[in-house]
Amino acid sequence: MKRLVSIMLAVLLAVGASAAFAGEAPDEGLLIGVLYKQSGNAYFQAAVEGFQKAADELGFTFIHDGPDDGSSDGQIRIIENYINQGVDAIAVSANDADALVSALQEAKAAGIKVVSWDAPVAAEGRDLDVQPASAKSIALTQLESICESIGGEGQLAIVSAMATAPNQNLWISFIEEALRDDPAYANIEYVGTVYGDDEYTKSYDETLGLINLYPELKGIITPTTAGAPAVAKCVMDEGKSIKVTGLTLASDMAEYIKAGVCDATFLWNPIELGYAASYAAVALIKGEITGAEGETFDVPGVGVLTIEQSTAVNDEGELAPTDGTISYLNKLNSFTVETVDEWVDIL
């Protein structure tokens, strides 16, 4: 009886295997493996558009995937898969900066160039990190915006993503620093950061907790696309006159921007980010750059990007130079009542 089972299994497999799948790679030319944090995420879908745009211009092909469950070991599986397929470069947005290092080092040993984008991997595991804007400019743009919205005084809180997210923590440290040192923010009382884990429910609940805990709360910064709609929804549901700003997708926030919950929200253009990451990867493959400090590469429409020394938060909470190199697009889009509709269909 079990024999029948196995035969059916085998037939199933054969049928599944003979069904051809679209998205084949043409023979010569470069192949780039794009890896993002999780499949089915609109933000990364937009970034893939950027890779597509660059692929059309530069004539390379790319494959893209992300683990179903957003786990690091899922990303490792995909990296090994890419190595097997003989990609020329891997462009990765890492779920965990440290967990992927071994796998990526193996890729580098096989002659594969590694570019991290969006969320960096540790320096040992990459050739170059491409980021939309320097942490400082991202942080201060949001802070300036919220300061203007609330008239320069009142209580301010931050709703972040995971407590481990390195980019989140970096931005928060800059915001905290500016609030502490910059006299322009002397009248703003910073009440603290809560973590919504990029889960809608958790972000919503944490925001609710904040609102109840600080009835005088005036503004919230939420530098996470996944958490922002939950935060804005919560503020709107509670009917409070709290202003929200943050890094958000336009389609998520159009409603709240129009309702006046947000005066302006920001995001880099993930399409441009993917686009620039592609150009960096191709330049690395072709040997035009090696990922060393001071080199430059040209991204059409974005500008000439310079490779700089990376920085990170050290134990004292200050930004210090670290291993590895990075280049910034330094372009941030703002979504306001006037501009948001242009972006709704893109982001």
Partner: peptide
């Protein structure tokens, strides 16, 4: 698993 993930340890490891 710790060996595989470059000797990093997380509480949400090995979900599922």
């Amino acid at each position: 698993f710790v060996g595989a993930t470059s000797s990093s340890i997380r509480a949400d490891a090995m979900m599922g």
